[in-house]
Design a protein around this nucleic acid. Structure first.
Lengths: 98, 98
DNA sequence: TTAAAGTACTTTGAATTACAAAGTAAATAT
DNA sequence: ATATTTACTTTGTAATTCAAAGTACTTTAA
């Protein structure tokens, strides 16, 4: 399969906002909703739906709890998510590197 | 602006198929419709619409002619397209590298 | 004490996008 | 003559993206 076949790029990860979320998550153990919202520069609604999609794809796991009487959602990559991201990056680099 | 801000990635280029087209086009002087269709693994209709979008964005130029009595469309990156692609790759790498 | 404002999300609806099926126009094969 | 192939383009629809509005609280102000 040619390196230029566009379908080789995981479409779940490839969305701009989800890619930014995944790229952020690989650098940390876990991240709170509000932290991601700030880093990725997303609106609440948009972030929420994309995190849900990543969850449903099994790429991200969440733990929702209350701390100081406030809801806190913590997100982290799953093993599957990490592997998928690595594969995605590998293919992406083959595509963009000459 | 944080490297994780998803909006920094050029949305015209970022689409999977258009990214593949652009990545292909930076490696060659020009490419025919049928060549791109094969390399990128796209259907005619899909390729056609995305090439048109790249054209309208000023990233790609086309020359349409007849050769051996058949229509041939040749596509090449414009200067603007090349610059935009370089910028895109730069930002993408900052995003996915650590 | 109760009303208003904030926080941390989720749901909804509308606009945009991506895609392939169908269409066009010309050439070639049967 | 008719059917098929080639090189595209147009069209219709399904999926995606996004922010506005909504929910369920908590905190602050009056």
């Amino acid at each position: 399969m040619s390196d230029f076949n566009y379908q080789q790029l995981d479409e779940i990860i490839h969305s701009r906002i989800r890619l930014a979320i995944m790229a952020m998550l690989v650098t940390v153990d876990e991240a709170e909703f509000t932290f991601l919202r700030e880093k990725v520069n997303a609106t609440d609604g948009n972030l929420s739906t994309h995190l849900k999609k990543l969850e449903e794809s099994g790429y991200v796991a969440v733990s929702k709890s209350f701390e100081n009487r406030k809801p806190v959602s913590r997100y982290m990559l799953t093993k599957k998510g990490r592997t998928a991201f690595e594969m995605y990056v590998e293919r992406l680099e083959k595509l963009i590197k000459k």
